[in-house]
Simulated assay, not measured.
Amino acid sequence: MIPRTWPEAGLAFLLCLNAGLGEELFFRLALPLLTGQLTGSLIAGAALSTLLFGGMHWYQGLKGVLATTALGLIFMIRALNGTPLIWLMGFHALMDVVALFIRPALSGHFSRKTVRQPAVRPSS
């Protein structure tokens, strides 16, 4: 998911902002409330939401799932204790921006041009 070019980095930046806003709205607000309504337990909603949030990051491997589940739990506890959702959204987006945009940029990871794959010519 780490971008390879500056144009991809711009899209990654927008993706980070979207993830911060969308994932926090869904996993810290909508899903816990909906599950809480269906089960009668806000704790069940919070637990399910936290586990699904971590599991959604399966593409990062086991360490990524465990780390995002732990962060999701911290965020859920903060949300349940009254931290404004907009703060959680901002912090989530900031963490993603650092991981997908700032760290690769500081390491010189991006090239100026789009990486092109060599053309495959059919054999005769």
Results as ranks from 00 to 15, higher is better:
114 T>F: 11
72 G>E: 05
30 A>W: 12
56 M>I: 14
71 L>T: 09
46 A>M: 12
25 L>Q: 07
67 A>L: 10
26 F>N: 05
103 R>W: 00
121 R>G: 07
15 L>P: 02
76 M>Y: 06
15 L>D: 03
92 H>Q: 06
13 F>L: 15
30 A>P: 07
75 F>I: 02
114 T>Y: 08
118 P>S: 10
21 L>G: 08
70 A>H: 03
104 P>Q: 01
48 L>G: 13
46 A>N: 10
41 S>M: 04
115 V>R: 13
30 A>T: 06
59 Y>H: 13
70 A>C: 05
44 A>F: 12
112 R>M: 10
83 T>R: 02
83 T>E: 01
106 L>T: 03
26 F>R: 05
48 L>P: 14
94 L>P: 03
94 L>M: 09
115 V>M: 11
71 L>E: 04
85 L>I: 12
16 C>M: 14
80 L>G: 06
101 F>G: 04
107 S>E: 12
98 V>L: 12
22 G>I: 09
65 V>H: 07
105 A>T: 06
41 S>Y: 05
14 L>N: 12
121 R>P: 08
53 F>K: 15
49 S>P: 11
37 Q>S: 06
89 M>A: 06
87 W>L: 10
89 M>H: 03
34 L>K: 04
14 L>M: 15
61 G>R: 10
48 L>F: 11
40 G>V: 10
40 G>Q: 11
21 L>R: 00
3 P>L: 05
29 L>H: 04
33 L>Q: 11
91 F>Q: 14
90 G>K: 01
2 I>H: 00
31 L>I: 11
45 G>V: 12
46 A>H: 09
108 G>S: 00
56 M>E: 08
34 L>W: 11
31 L>G: 08
122 P>H: 15
72 G>C: 03
53 F>V: 14
14 L>Q: 10
119 A>H: 12
91 F>T: 09
53 F>I: 15
80 L>N: 06
12 A>K: 01
4 R>W: 10
92 H>C: 03
11 L>V: 11
70 A>F: 07
60 Q>K: 13
4 R>S: 14
78 R>I: 01
8 E>D: 14
110 F>K: 00
